[in-house]
Simulated scan of single mutants.
Amino acid sequence: MSNQTFTVGGMTCGHCARSVTEELSELPGVSDVQVSVENGQVSVTSAQPLTLEAATAAITEAGYTITDWPSSN
């Protein structure tokens, strides 16, 4: 299992959080998505680490942008 946390810009309400959660949950292998609108943090648990490209596509589809992506370990 992989757990990644990154920052998404533009979220201001519960609807924003639901949109981001819905789009990320549709990615293969994603089992959990937690969104904190207050600080813009999104935590994703998945079978394999998400790629920046896949996460960006999902976040863009929801109408937002990734503003901070974790560096590789």
Rank of each mutant, 00 (worst) to 15 (best):
C16V: 01
M11E: 04
L27P: 06
V42C: 06
I59G: 07
V30Q: 11
E53G: 00
V37G: 14
N39C: 07
T65C: 08
V30S: 09
T56E: 13
E53F: 02
T67N: 11
T51I: 01
A57Y: 02
A54K: 13
E53L: 02
T5L: 12
I59D: 09
L50W: 04
V33R: 00
T67A: 07
A62S: 11
Q4M: 13
R18K: 11
T12C: 02
I59E: 13
V33I: 00
G14T: 05
M11N: 08
G40P: 09
C13N: 06
G29H: 05
T65F: 15
V20N: 09
T7F: 14
A47Q: 11
A57D: 10
A17S: 11
N73L: 14
D68P: 00
E22Y: 12
T56P: 00
A62C: 09
M1D: 10
L52M: 13
G29P: 06
S31A: 12
S31D: 09
E26R: 15
G10T: 05
V30Y: 02
E38G: 14
N3V: 15
E22Q: 11
T7V: 03
L27E: 05
G10D: 01
T45M: 06
S36T: 14
G29W: 04
S72D: 15
T56C: 04
T60G: 04
M11W: 09
S72R: 07
I59M: 10
V42W: 00
Y64T: 00
